[in-house]
């Protein structure tokens, strides 16, 4: 009987699911309320509640993200603001030539990316759209997909959606890509045979060595990683994860990572856009 009791307790623990490290509230700059916990979308059978990665970090790191003055990502954003109105390319245009005030024109944009582009007939990430603007409209060179120019621009654009709910479409023309991303999420990769779900769905809030596993949400990306002393792009993060499974990884900007980004972004539907976040 005793064994059964223990077992029941253990199952109850598992069934309740781990909770994020704390119940801290994230308010940025004293006025932008960020939703860091929400009911999981019904298409994620493995989770009841979704949590932002912020909830898994220690208090001193959490604080760095609560005030833009202390958030080291903002240095890159400041540079991106200058870049926004700097003419580049053969057409003599800057971002501002078409999009004018970034705070107005980019409001809410990040919250719905990746999304379907009807003209191109493809799913586009924010980085793809930025590069398309550069090559097609500005006559400028494409930026390196996960380089610092790109992450700075992504951070600047994402900030204009901070506090707004992530709301990525998963059906209609993106359905196939989304399905591909979902399959990747549950596919075990590498010599360690780990899927995204192995860590971020089945074991979030547990420790893998000294790392406190989060749900792997990307609502805070690009994120300033202390390890890198700089902004890290979503695909770069994916690459690091897959490398850690000891697998050959896909490249930033590849069709596979675009599909995975769409799917992972949709797992955060209901959380707030939080980028640029601060992570260890």
């Amino acid at each position: 009987m005793r064994t059964t009791g223990l077992l029941t307790a253990a199952i109850a623990l598992v069934a309740t699911g781990a909770v994020a490290q704390d119940d801290h509230q994230l308010v940025t700059n004293g006025d932008i309320e960020i939703v860091t916990e929400a009911p999981a979308p019904d298409y994620i059978s493995g989770l009841r509640t979704i949590y932002s990665g912020w909830r898994f970090r220690d208090a001193s790191l959490q604080e760095m993200q609560m005030d833009d003055f202390e958030n080291p990502a903002i240095i890159a954003v400041d540079k991106a603001i200058v870049q926004w109105s700097t003419v580049d390319g053969t057409e003599g245009k800057s971002c501002a030539s078409c999009h004018e005030d970034v705070e107005q024109s980019m409001l809410g944009v990040r919250a719905v990316y990746p999304k379907w582009n009807e003209d191109a007939g493809e799913v586009r990430t924010l980085a793809m759209q930025i590069n398309d603007c550069r090559t097609e409209n500005m006559g400028a060179e494409a930026w390196k997909y996960d380089g610092s120019d790109m992450t700075g621009a992504e951070a600047l654009i994402s900030m204009q959606s901070r506090g707004m709910p992530v709301n990525v479409a998963i059906d209609g023309p993106v359905a196939d890509t989304w399905k591909q991303g979902e399959e990747m999420y549950y596919t075990r990769y590498g010599q360690l045979e780990l899927s995204c779900a192995s860590c971020h769905e089945e074991n979030y809030d547990n420790y893998i060595r000294a790392d406190h596993l989060s749900q792997g949400q990307i609502n805070g990306f690009p994120a300033f990683r202390l390890k890198n002393d700089g902004l890290v792009q979503t695909h770069n993060r994916f690459k690091g994860c897959i490398r850690d499974t000891r697998a050959e990884t896909y490249s930033p900007g590849s069709a596979e990572f675009v599909a995975l980004e769409l799917y992972v972004a949709s797992r955060g539907n209901g959380l707030s856009v939080e980028a640029p976040s601060v992570r260890p």
Binding site: I208, R209, A210, D211, L213, K227, P280
Partner: peptide, 8 residues
């Protein structure tokens, strides 16, 4: 100082 490497 924790030496993790994956960081989340």
């Amino acid at each position: 100082v924790t030496i993790g490497g994956c960081g989340g």
